[in-house]
Simulated scan of single mutants.
Amino acid sequence: MADIKIKMSINQKIEVINHNKKYNCRIQDIKENCFLIDAPFLLLHDTDIEFLISNDDEVFACSSKIIGHKKENNINLSIISMPYSVMKVQRREYYRLTIAEPIKYSSLPLGKHYKSIHNVPAEIFSKLKTSVTIDISGGGVKIITNENIAAGRYVILEMDIGETLDLLAVSIRCEKDENSKQYRVSLKYVKLDNRTRDKIISYIFMKSRELIKANK
């Protein structure tokens, strides 16, 4: 059971992430060791599930397990274990996972602004450099570079989350590490569609579970 306690109530809305998609569900019943939600999609038995739940002004990202199914009043219900992992989330900024993962990037010419990744000239993608992440979230990523990518400069990213994502981002902060002489660049995604964002969030949940299991 998670150390952080969350409040649940019948008819409370939760956002379930399943197969890189997000669904709005409601809690239909609460038991001592589980709760039931309406499930207009297939949730396989004995698989992990991630969901977001709000308590007052706070939002929590939770991991649970599907432990059964039933039908009541012609409503398909999934039986969910109480969360084994709970993380507080700032929804505006999304949950930020500290992790070192390979990533490729290329800074775009100064003064060039692009509305989406599809507007970036193809030749830019041949200039990708290899870097490593410091942290990843559904709203952006922080990477280490050997160059100063000043705030306001646009960057393209190639991120591997089990599939390759080409992303457009803009630097919002660049700090020099005086010891390594490298730069820590905070990047915010630009015009990221919800489906791609949900894929990144699902990947973050998966990596979080792996880290939790590895540290047990």
Rank of each mutant, 00 (worst) to 15 (best):
I172D: 11
L42G: 00
D3T: 12
A2E: 12
R195A: 11
E178R: 10
T196Y: 04
E72G: 07
Y154A: 03
S107N: 05
I80M: 03
V89H: 06
R26V: 09
K181L: 11
I149H: 05
L187M: 07
H19E: 14
L167Q: 06
S171M: 07
T133G: 10
L52A: 14
D29C: 08
I161P: 10
S9I: 00
S116Q: 06
I136N: 03
S186N: 09
T164P: 06
E147P: 01
L187H: 02
H113K: 09
D46K: 02
K176A: 09
C174I: 06
D48R: 04
G152N: 03
L192Q: 02
Y189M: 11
I136L: 15
H45I: 05
K142S: 12
R184Q: 07
N74E: 13
V86C: 09
I204N: 04
S85I: 00
G111N: 02
V120T: 03
E15N: 15
L52S: 14
N73S: 06
V86I: 14
P83A: 11
S63R: 07
C174G: 06
I53A: 01
N148T: 11
K181R: 02
M1L: 06
N73K: 09
Q182K: 12
L211P: 02
D160E: 13
A122H: 15
N73C: 00
Y154G: 02
I6E: 02
I200L: 09
Y114F: 10
I75T: 12
M1K: 07
S81V: 03
A151K: 03
S202P: 01
F51Y: 15
R91L: 06
E93N: 09
L97K: 13
S180K: 08
R197V: 01
Y94S: 14
F35D: 01
E101T: 02
C62A: 15
